[in-house]
Design a protein around this nucleic acid. Structure first.
Lengths: 189, 189
DNA sequence: CTCACATGAGACATCAGTGTCTCATTGCGG
DNA sequence: CCGCAATGAGACACTGATGTCTCATGTGAG
């Protein structure tokens, strides 16, 4: 009976990640169902996007859970987190831009929860002395989202090898571009 | 006679940065002109976006020029570049997501030029030993765009103080989050 | 086998945005 | 003062997407 709702969501995610303006008809075709059935599952395009948002939030929270952000060095936890999010990065990238659309309306509370947990991870790293303290946790959280989205697109467009995804993000985020062992580092950072 | 075309473009940029789906009517109102006049200036919405793209490219190239990317330490050049782009970051952020829409169609060649010059800057830093070489110039370029867009949104939403814009981006990009070991390089503040 | 229910296909009205048009008004230079 | 050009206001048709509806089909459970 029920069309595999999860399958519909996932194909919609895959399609919308590439063509964020895809029509309901295209979404239905991509899922291998008719537009009527798609409409029976999701009241409208808005409902579909909300469902995708819920899916993205759930996957983020699962990844957050699996990353054990409170264990071990914060840097390692960040790496585990990015690695766990990697499979869902395209969906996240879609939602990231889509969220810019929701300007006025209320955001799903799930994002706030996730933001808080990620920010807490960075804060923990700062408290332990592992991370520098001149970059605010809020900014680091935002930057992580931005890097995830950038990397997802770069991979989608073939500018970055898929296997390098986690490495590129984590190394840039944690270590930065500057070579640590460069001899004279007189720069006050 | 001619409505100040530049003024129209800039108010359109300001509006579309916040509401990327704003209607032509809203764009016209934001510029203080009628929809008819807006239409006389730009054949259609597409032409308007293209004009904004051209504006963004021009501003990027101007910033690139002003940053003197071939002079001095690459890190300093990156800082000059980000500082120069800062005023135009909202427009860039808009174009960055809008570009995801142009998937199939040909990209404006201007972006390729800019990509090349930025990538060349990173490559120069790598060649001089200033930057690490395990992060590809293409990825660093992409990441820079992502960070610029993230920061622009974070500032727009009040999550980051406008005055911290350049510092947050440059420090994260160059130095990363991880605190440099205090023992070997002691940096007295 | 038969019934029930989900689905696919498609018709249909609706709506929003767009692009084009006309016409009156305004403002400016000759 | 007159005429010209640009503008503003609005009507209009067109398009594309959406949401709702009906009906035929098919498949699975009893």
């Amino acid at each position: 009976m029920a069309v595999d709702r999860d399958h519909v969501l996932r194909s919609a995610a895959a399609l919308l990640t590439r063509r964020s303006t895809a029509t309901m008809d295209e979404v239905a075709k991509a899922a291998g169902i008719s537009r009527a059935t798609l409409h029976r599952q999701f009241a409208g395009r808005d409902a579909l996007v909300r469902a995708l948002e819920a899916l993205g939030i759930a996957e983020c929270e699962a990844a957050l859970e699996a990353a054990r952000p409170d264990e071990g060095p914060a840097g390692d936890a960040v790496r585990r987190l990015v690695a766990g999010i990697e499979p869902h990065a395209p969906l996240l990238a879609f939602l990231y831009t889509e969220n810019q659309l929701f300007e006025g309306e209320e955001q799903n509370a799930g994002w706030a929860r996730i933001d808080d947990r990620i920010a807490a991870l960075f804060r923990r790293g700062q408290a332990s002395g592992e991370f520098r303290i001149d970059l605010t946790p809020a900014w680091l959280t935002e930057a992580l989202y931005g890097l995830l989205a950038s990397a997802a697109w770069a991979v989608a467009e073939g500018r970055v090898a898929p296997k390098d995804f986690t490495h590129m993000i984590v190394e840039l985020l944690l270590g930065g571009v500057r070579r640590p062992d460069t001899a004279p580092q007189r720069k006050e950072s």
